[in-house]
Design a protein around this nucleic acid. Structure first.
Length: 440
DNA sequence: AGCACA
């Protein structure tokens, strides 16, 4: 009652303070940038950024009042305004004499975030989507979800407070990108605070909680028929009911894996009707649709744990998808439907026989991928399916010395191993996303 | 573009 709230909110002249109030900052502004801004005028002893409803205000506190005065005076007469990331920043004395309650950068919070998902459809957000979103900032150790009066909430555990902090700064107040959600879901906004927890206790892998550090954790019985999204448990084993659609994750992807390569590998076991590849958790995954479950089972048994390329590269991990018919709208380099309209016909334009080594001139008739790879023999062993890697040595004499058709070593392909873990991380860290959430 | 925190 008797607080400062009875004071007028704005005064024409602020009495000097060693704390300065900054506004019109870019949303992404960091404490480091605030320190940089103030450093020419004195010693910045404390900062606070992302303040205010739009998170575009901040405070900086100098060790000495004169330093604050110097900064205000300088910009009062400067032709160049104070700027952060090219944006003009407005300065004035704060109406307080010190920054209160600011945790000094490192000890901001803990390694566990309390995430509240807001929105009408919030509780339809799967733990896998949350995992995907937060994995953009570092390894997510554990996630638990629960419903309280506050709504649908999750605890997300990172290895350290810094990672948690970067995730919080980037995601707090944002919407989960709509393309990560089922189409019919409305916007789901993330509200993030620090949790007091440091290590979550996860007893089971389930649709409500996950421990990504412990592949041997038992799976809760309730998770077996959970209606979550992909139930790609860490253990993966025998959880999912069999399906005609396989989910392939590719590990140790040193070399390009194209749609053509995948199609060729999986076609060895039967006709591949549809295929789609996408990035998930920084790796490549693909969904491969066969006409029937039996073919998928055979392919899964034969290919599980095997490598597309010799040398342990591009190791396949397979599970059954919950899908039975993929919805593929366009044929492009990430997704194709090769489903024939008229049976007994050749597959359409998509040439599954074409794959890297053969295209670039494997020795005629030796280990270029033979056309019969496209037959429907479900028992074709894996070995001949393997693409030879080459190590740039494909032109060696043992292959019969091919004068004008050296195989292109796959290493020369321009697959970017060092790309960011997730493409949408760039959307978060740049301004291609509106403050209220949706990316565009 | 106008003052935080619990």
């Amino acid at each position: 009652m008797s607080s400062v709230s009875s004071q007028p909110q704005f005064r024409l002249t602020q009495p000097p303070s060693k704390v300065l109030h900054l506004r019109n900052l870019p949303w992404e502004c960091t404490e480091e940038e605030l320190v940089e801004l103030g450093k020419p005028f004195g010693k910045v002893v404390n900062t606070k950024c992302n303040v205010g409803p739009n998170r575009n205000q901040a405070f900086i506190e100098f060790s000495d009042l004169n330093q604050a005065i110097a900064m205000i005076s300088y910009y009062a007469s400067s032709s160049e305004p104070a700027q952060v990331r090219g944006k003009t920043v407005y300065l004035q004395y704060s109406n307080r004499q010190e920054i209160v309650n600011n945790k000094t950068t490192a000890d901001v919070g803990g390694n566990v975030l309390l995430v509240t998902i807001e929105g009408a459809d919030a509780r339809l957000v799967s733990i896998d989507v949350l995992h995907l979103v937060f994995s953009a900032f570092g390894f997510v150790h554990k996630i638990t979800t629960f419903e309280k009066t506050a709504g649908f909430q999750a605890l997300v555990q990172f290895s350290d407070a810094e990672t948690a902090s970067s995730a919080k700064n980037a995601l707090d107040g944002r919407n989960i990108p709509s393309y990560l959600l089922p189409e019919h879901l409305g916007p789901c906004t993330l509200r993030i605070t620090y949790s007091a927890h440091t290590d979550l206790s996860v007893k089971f892998q389930s649709h409500r909680s996950r421990d990504y550090t412990n592949a041997n954790l038992p799976v809760a019985p309730s998770a077996i028929d959970a209606n979550g999204m992909f139930s790609v448990g860490l253990d993966g084993k025998k959880l999912e009911p069999e399906s005609n659609v396989l989910l392939a994750s590719i590990e140790n992807m040193q070399y390009a894996v194209t749609l053509d390569v995948l199609h060729m590998v999986f076609s060895s076991f039967g006709p591949v009707q549809k295929i789609a590849m996408f990035d998930k958790n920084g790796g490549l995954q693909a969904l491969i649709q066969y006409p029937d479950v039996q073919t998928a089972v055979v392919a899964k048994e034969a290919l599980e744990g095997h490598c597309i390329y010799d040398g342990g590269f591009c190791k396949l991990h397979l599970s059954y998808s919950r899908h039975s018919d993929l919805s593929i709208k366009v044929n492009n380099d990430r997704s194709r439907t090769t489903q024939f309209q008229h049976c007994n016909d050749e597959p359409p334009a998509f040439n599954s026989g074409q794959q890297p080594v053969a295209t670039h001139g494997g020795p005629p008739g030796s280990h270029s991928m033979p056309a019969q790879m496209n037959n429907n023999n479900p028992y074709l062993p894996l070995e001949p399916c393997r693409l030879k890697m080459g190590h740039g040595m494909m032109q060696d004499a043992s292959h019969g010395g091919l004068p004008h058709a050296p195989a292109m070593p796959l290493q020369t392909w321009s697959y970017a191993i060092a790309r960011p873990p997730l493409s949408y991380i760039n959307l978060f860290s740049h301004s291609r996303i509106s403050r209220s959430g949706e990316c565009y």
